[in-house]
Write a protein that binds this DNA or RNA. Sequence first.
RNA 1: CCGCCCGUAGCUCAGUGGAUCAGAGCGACUGACUUCGGAUCAGUAGGUCGGGGGUUCGAAUCCCUCCGGGCGGGCCA
Length: 552
Amino acid sequence: MRDAVERAWTRSIAEGALPGLADDVARPAVEVERPADPAHGDFATNLAMKLARPYRMAPLAIATQLSGQLAREATEARPATPIATVEVAPPGFLNIRLADASLEAAVTGILADPAGWGRVAPMGSRSVNVEFVSANPTGPLHIGNARGAFVGDLLCRVLEAGGQRVTREYYFNDSGGQIRNLGASVAALRRGDPLPEDGYKGDYVADLVAALPDDLWESASARGADTDGIVGHWAAGRVREGIERSLAELGVRFDVWTSEARLHDEGWVERAVQRLRDHGYVYEQDGAIWFRSTDFGDDKDRVIYRSNGEPTYFAADIGYVTEKFSRGFDDLIYIWGADHHGTVARVRNAAEAMGYDRNAVRMLLYSWVRFVRDGQEVSMSKRAGEFITLDELLAEVGVDAARWFFASRGATSAIDFDIELAKKQSNENPVYYVQYAHARIASIMRKAAESGLTPASGVDGALTGAPEAALARAVARFPEVVEDAVAAEETQGITAYATDLATTFHGFYRDARVVDAADPDRSAVRLALASATRVTLANALRLLGISAPESM
RNA sequence: CCGCCCGUAGCUCAGUGGAUCAGAGCGACUGACUUCGGAUCAGUAGGUCGGGGGUUCGAAUCCCUCCGGGCGGGCCA
C-alpha cells in the first residue's frame, strides 16, 4: 500500500500534475497507517499534509490530485489491484478502502501456500553476523543473561524474515584472569582449602570439583604445573557446555563459538594493530600502545597494549572485527547490555580506521533488567554465588511465556523484574491467549472432519458476511506487520498483531457458526477462513520462536 | 562535573522522524450461550503521557530546562 501511494505521487510528478521537490528539501517519507476508526477506511495517509509546506499548496488540493491518481492506478488492468475507493478527508487525509476481492484473494492465497504467508520481499540479501550473550564461562547463565539471549535471537529471526543470511555467534574468553580465578576456586575446594578471598562461591563450583577427573587433577597439581590455569581451562570448557545446553532450552542455537584466546593465537589481533599502525592511528606513550580514537570524535585515545605488554580487551575487539569481516560478512551486529555503551564508539572508530564502513558495525544496546523481590533489589553476582539461573527461570515460567515477555517489549525499555510477579504473571501471559486461539481452531478443524465437512479451497466471492469480512481484513494485514517488524528490527508489532488477530477470531467464533452440517457450503467458507487464521497465527508465533499447539 | 538510556492507567508495557494515538494485557467492577474448547465473549471505572517553557495550524512524539531512576566516563572484564 505504501508502494501504491508512492507510485501515485511519482506518477503525479512525472505527469506534471504535481511539482517535483527542490533538491535542498528533504523528501518526506510516505506514511501509511491503519486507522483506528473503521470509518476512515483500511488505510490512511497524511502525505498531502506533509507536502503542503514544501509545495506551498493547500493540502486538500494535493490530496485530491493524489486521490485521482491512486484511483486511476487501481482501475488499470493489473491482477492485484486491491483499492476499492479513495476518499479525501479534511484537512488532507487520504482514506483508502480495500476491495473485498483483494481480501478474498489473500485468503485463497494462504490456503494454497501456507508456509509462504507472511514472507516478505527480501529487503537486501546481506550476510550478517550477530554476536550475543557472550558471557564468559565462569558460571551458569543467570536471568540477567536472558534478555540478551532473547533480544539477539529475535533480532536474528527478524533479519532472516527480511531475507538476510544470519550467523549467530557467541564470543567468550576461556583463558583470562577470571578463568584462572575460577580454576583457583575449584583447586582450593579439591584440596580442601578455604576458597580464595575473591573466589567463586556458587554451588556449581562444588559440582565442578566433583566432576574433576583424577588424572587431570594429578597433572595439574604436579610440582611446577600451572594448577589454576589448567583447572580453570577445564572448568571453563565444562561450564561452556552447560551454557550451550541452557541456550538450547531457550531455543537459541549458535552457529559459531569464538574464543578470545584463538584470536590472539592466530595473530588476528597483531595483524589488526599493524593495520591501524599502517594507517597512522597508533602511537606509543608511557610505555603503552595507543589507538588514536580521538581522530574519530572519541573524547580520549584508547590503550591497545598496556605498558606491561599485555593486550587490553579492546585489542581483542579490534582483532575480532577483522576476523569477522574476513569471513565475508557485510554487517556485524553486537547485542550488548547498556552498560557497554561506553565501548561502542571506540570499536566503530577502530573499524573505520582499519578501512571498514563504520555503518556496517552496529551495536544494539538493551537495557539492563533490574531484579527485585518484595521491593528489594536483588544483586546478581556470579562470584558471590547470588543469582537465579536461567534454567531455574525457565522451570518457573516456561520458554514460550519468557519469549513472549521479551518479544513484546522494546530492547531499550528498562524493566523491573519482580521474580514473584513473573511467576504469577506467567499464567496470565498473553501468549496463552494467542496459543489458545490457535488450539481452538485446530479443535474446530478436527470437529469439522468428524462431521464430514472440509474447508473450501478458495473463498472468492464468498466473504459476504460481516464477521467473515472483519476476520479476513485482520488476516490480510499480516504481511505488512512482518514488513514493519523487519524494517524496524523490532518484534513488539508482531505480538500486538497476534493478540489482535486472536481477539478478532474469538469474535468471529462468537458471531459465526463454523461447523454446521445443515449448511455445508457456508461451513466450507468459514472453515477456510478459520484455516487461514490458524496459518497466520502459527506463522506469527513461528517468527518469534514460540510454539503453536494443536491443543492445550 | 560530563555523556548515554529511561519516566505513559493501580501493575507490566506498547505508541515516540506531528494530525485519524490516549492504547493493550493484567488487576477491579457489572453482565453472557443447556449446541463448534469459558484459557472465551460484551460492557464499566481508571491517565493534566514526570514538571515547566518553546517551535507549530497541531506535540506523548521535536528543542530547552528542571525533577526522579538506571548506566557509563580504567593501562578492569
